[in-house]
Structures are given as C-alpha cells and as structure tokens.
Write a protein that binds this DNA or RNA. Structure first.
Lengths: 210, 210
DNA sequence: TAACTTATGTAACAATAGTTACAAAGAGGC
DNA sequence: GCCTCTTTGTAACTATTGTTACATAAGTTA
C-alpha cells in the first residue's frame, strides 16, 4: 500500500503525513461497478483514489439520475469530505467505473491534519476547487449544449478517463447517465455514426474522432 | 463596521478572529446592480457578506449566461476563495441584487487563519459545502425540471432572498437568468398568471402563491 | 436448433422550447 | 396632446426532445 500511495501522493503530501496515512488509512480494492457511496450515506471517512475511475451520480427524490463527473487517480470526493467532517448525509452516489484502489481516511484525522500539514490544507482546498469547477462544467453542459453535443462530449470524456478508444456500454446505460431516453440516444448515436465520428457495435462504441 | 460584523458573525467566529477581521478587513458598500466580481478576475481576497444579496452568474465562452445561485448574509463566495488562495481566475460573475455591505478579507490571511482558528476552518469548509449543495440544486433544476417549473422556482426563490412578495423585473431579465428567450418567459408567465399563481404588471410581478 | 432475452433501429407522433414577426400598451419627455 | 422608447402579448412556425410501438438482430440457454 505504501508503494502505491507514494507512487502518486509523494509529490502531494509531506513525508510525515504519508506516514500517518499509512498508519490510519484503510486500503480497499473496488471491483468494476461496485458501489462506494450511496445516496444518504453518512460518511465515516473520505476515500483517496490510488487508481481506477469512479463515477459520481446525482439522484433526485423521484429516483431520476444524472452523471455529475468522474474521479481519477489523485482525486478525492469532496462530497464525502463534506459529509464526513460536518456529519451531513451525502447527496450523491459513487460507483467504480472500473477496478479501482482507494485508501479510506478516518474522519477523526481530517480536521487535525488541516492544522498540522500545509500540504493537506492545499489538497483539501484544491479538491474543493476542482470539484466546484467540475460542477460548473456540468452546469455549462446542461445549460448550453444540445443533447447531440452532450452525447459526443460524454463519449470522448469517458474514453479519456478510461484510457480506451472504445466503450463497452449499451444505449440504455448512456441514457441513464445523460438523463434521457434510450430511443433518443440510439437516434443521436446513429447520427454520429453517419457523420463518421463513431462506429457502433452491439455493447460497444468505437470512437473514431476525438 | 464592528457592530455589523458582530451582529451576524459573533456566533460564527472566535473573538480573536473577529478582532483580526476588524483590523485587516476592508468594508465596502455595494449599490444595486454593482459588479463585485467579473469573469476572469484574479481575486485579491474574499468578500464576507454582511447583508443584502449577491447574484452569482456563470458565463461560457460564447457569452451565454445562466444564474447559479444567490449569496445572502453570512455567505462568502467559494469561487473567490478558490481564486484568491490558489491564484486561479474566477469562473463566475457576481452582481449585487440589491444594496449590500461586504467586508473584503485579504488573501494573505486566509491560509494563516486556517491554522489558527477552528471557527475559520469550519466556516471555510461549511462555505464550500453549502456552495457544492447549491450547485447540485442548480444541476437538479437544469436536469430534471421543465422551463415552467424552473421559472416558478426562480420567482419564489428570488422573492424569498429579497424578502419581498413582488419582484421589480422585466421578462427579458428573467430570460437572461434562465438562459432562454423573452418570448418563452412571457408565454410561461402568462400561463402562471392564468393558474392564479402570480399577477403580472409592467416591470413588476406579484407572487400570489408560494 | 428453437426459444428466450437483451440490444438496437426506426417510424410516427406528442410535447416542449426556441424563433420570427408584428401589434399594442405603458411611461416619459417635449 | 404627440412622439419615442421600452415592455408585453400573441400568432405562426421550426427545432429539439420525449414517447409509443413494433421490428429485427445478436447473443444465451435449454
């Protein structure tokens, strides 16, 4: 675990903090599609992502979903932080988009470290800022783009996060993430295929143009 | 200034911190519609809102706008904080929705206070959390609601923020905030009037039902 | 291979939102 | 009063998105 921690975070955290994280952090491996955080969870700590990709989804009262953004290596979940440190319920759902490794940091340490380590303060503030910016990008997408543009952005973004040029997914799954219907997605995908930007197969979408 | 500061923040901050704020904070009065932060600004500090209401607006490259949320007494602008502490450019625009008073805190103190004052840490973390939640609510609104619902929510939310039952505004201004066209707003307002929820006048909308 | 399940394609139609165009009402200045 | 500018009302049309319905294709299992 220390090795994996160092491989990314040794440039982010002070040595003493890395030592502490090694002592109190709980390593966990997530299988693809494993649920990490569910709506309404009361977090007992925050996850530090070592590698992989986590999908963050918002759900309203009526059970309608929409994708917010993805977490990558080096990210943490600001919503979890919020939930852990001020004992709120979490307003999102986090699902491993592929096999991922995380370290769980217990909430008791979060405030203590803010005092002790400048690198931790920077990390927390940066994480919040990154998340706010992601949210703004999501808002831009929802407010300013048409569904065909949103779809294409979704495909290329996801491919980049997963570091693959083709996605194994169904039209229905995409429809859930973009909060629309399968028929709409099929229609627009076919349009993108006709424009030569993608190639469609069953359970698989190849992206030809980024 | 100390009096106004105490009236709200004496329950939020420690005495020593209030003293420091009094020393280094810069008081400023904003006229209605005065611009506080513009897109791309590099903040030299963060504003602490004493009273009034600030509108936070997002703008994309093409100059298209959408309302994100309002700040009220006791709020600070998390985006400014982000911009100030990590020297980023600000991605939003902030405009006084009515006459407001603020205290500007210089960015040099922001990190120092995180170490010194637990109340400041809590305030900063809470501010970020509140802002993340506001963003999520905005996303819910955009993703899950139709324009007529968004419009009604906009009217009632704004009335509550301004503590008034009628709004002095034009259809065009509402259209800018909701990122749609004036004709659409006029149409839907008329519909709401027919449903008995509002009453329309020139430059004025009375809200009959909350 | 037949039966079944899941995924995709597509037409036809409905609902919502955006656009263009123009009329008319209200407010203020002269 | 008359003129002008701003604001609102509304019709007619287009574009986009959502829904229903059904056909067909591609895997899976018995």
């Amino acid at each position: 675990m220390r090795e994996k921690l160092d491989s990314y975070y040794s440039f982010v955290f002070e040595k003493e903090l890395l030592d502490e994280i090694e002592q109190v952090g709980v390593y966990k491996k997530l299988r693809e599609n494993e649920l990490l955080v569910d709506l309404g969870d009361q977090m007992k700590g925050v996850p530090l992502l070592l590698n992989g990709a986590i999908k963050i989804v918002r759900e309203d009262k009526k059970g309608e979903e929409i994708l917010l953004y993805f977490l990558e290596r080096g990210d943490t979940c600001a919503s979890s932080f919020a939930s852990a440190i001020s004992n709120n319920k979490c307003g999102i759902r986090a699902i491993a988009e592929k096999e991922s490794e995380i370290i769980f940091l217990p909430k008791e340490k979060l405030d203590e470290w803010l005092v002790k380590y400048k690198s931790w303060r920077n990390f927390v503030i940066d994480s919040y800022n990154i998340r706010l910016n992601e949210m703004m990008e999501t808002i831009d997408t929802l407010a300013f783009m048409r569904m065909d543009e949103r779809l294409y952005k979704y495909l290329t973004d996801k491919a980049q996060i997963l570091r693959e040029t083709s996605l194994n997914t169904t039209h229905q799954d995409i429809a859930y993430d973009l909060h629309t219907s399968r028929v709409v997605i099929s229609r627009l995908l076919k349009q993108l295929e006709n424009e030569g930007k993608i190639k469609l197969n069953r359970n698989k979408i190849e992206i030809l143009e980024f």
